[in-house]
């Protein structure tokens, strides 16, 4: 918990270190000529002060701040700001469950994160479950050293080497293109509505993309672990006692082989929450990955800090679950 708090605090403080840009305050760009009547520079300065005041950004950032000394002759002085600072207010609000409001549209951050999660979690959750199930089946199959082992491993290695952006764009241009194979719908054809249900059939292609991207690493690691286990003494004994390779894998080797793969599986949980940025951007899905990427680009810090808190909490949970899983798989683990 301490790590999550430290991380979120760091992001909060770093994000507000410099003066906010006019865009993030919702003000027009003074260096453009597309404004009807350009405001005088003094009016712009006044306007910026008022925007800072209204958005609570005029207060000092932290409990203490450095007093600027123009001459540089005197030693650095620090000023105690008391509790009337941005960080104190933010922390108090977060402890009360209030993540603040988005700079961009004034909506509560929790609501934005919730809506994005409703789209992301079912998609990434289904992708993780599918990838895991297929990886288990595939690794078990490969461990039996069938004739297709080498081409399958080569294919998986090639898939792993393929950047996700190329995979996603390739699938989109190949399978949802009137000039190629027009099998899948594009985003605009999906029904309106939040969450995955209205998007329906449209999610098939992003799902396929996510499964294909997660599958190689899981399968290759699991297959290597299984191969290692099958060479162990207990496996040879079991085979000598007449157990088929299938029974051996299912009843004995798989459980042991899962142990080294557990951290990989645990890593999937924060990814479930953070969303797959590339897939969401390519397929235009309104999920967490796209929300956080756009918030970072637009310097929408309340959303960004809220996202960091959420992903941090998910990672914490994943580590706890991984520990519990390791204990279940191997009771010798303390």
């Amino acid at each position: 918990m301490l790590a999550v708090w430290a991380l979120a605090s760091l992001v909060f403080l770093l994000s507000r270190w410099g003066p906010p840009s006019d865009e993030s305050l919702g003000l027009s760009n003074a260096a453009d000529l597309n404004v009807g009547t350009p405001a005088a520079p003094s009016a712009r300065r006044q306007m910026r002060r008022e925007a800072l005041l209204r958005q609570g950004l005029a207060a000092p950032l932290f409990y203490f701040s450095r007093v600027a000394d123009g001459s540089g002759a005197r030693p650095v002085r620090w000023h105690w700001n008391g509790r009337r600072n941005q960080y104190h207010r933010w922390l108090g609000a977060v402890l009360r469950g209030n993540l603040g409001t988005s700079f961009r549209n004034g909506r509560p951050v929790a609501g934005r994160l919730g809506a994005a999660l409703a789209c992301t979690v079912p998609l990434t959750g289904a992708a993780a479950a599918l990838a895991l199930a297929i990886a288990l089946a595939l690794a078990a199959g490969l461990a039996r050293r069938p004739w297709w082992r080498r081409p399958a491993l080569a294919l998986l290695a090639a898939l792993q080497a393929l950047p996700l952006f190329v995979l996603a764009t390739g699938l989109l241009l190949l399978l949802a293109n009137p000039d190629a194979l027009n099998w899948f719908p594009t985003y605009d054809q999906a029904d309106a509505g939040n969450g995955p249900a209205p998007l329906g059939f449209y999610l098939a292609l992003p799902l396929l993309c996510l499964v294909l991207s997660a599958l190689p690493e899981l399968t290759l690691q699991l297959e290597a672990a299984l191969a290692h286990e099958l060479r162990a003494g207990y496996a040879v004994t079991a085979r000598a006692k007449g157990l088929s390779i299938k029974q051996l894998i299912r009843s004995h080797a798989l459980r042991n082989a899962l142990l080294p793969v557990l951290p990989l599986i645990a890593d999937l949980l924060p990814a479930l929450v953070a969303g797959a940025v590339v897939v969401e951007v390519v397929f235009s899905l309104p999920g967490m990955g796209r929300l956080l990427a756009e918030a970072a680009a637009a310097r929408d810090y309340p959303v960004l800090v809220g996202g960091v808190l959420l992903v941090g909490a998910a990672r914490l949970l994943a580590l706890l679950l991984a520990d519990a899983g390791a204990r279940w798989l191997d009771p010798r683990v303390l």
Binding site: N29, D32, G36, P41
Partner: peptide, 27 residues
């Protein structure tokens, strides 16, 4: 290097080139 957005209606270059706008739009 940037894109300077203009409009067809008003020719007022003070926000980007007047000495009073230094520190604001006069980059």
């Amino acid at each position: 290097i940037r894109l300077l957005k203009g409009n067809p209606f008003i020719f007022n270059f003070a926000p980007i080139l007047h000495s009073r706008a230094v520190g604001e739009g006069n980059l």
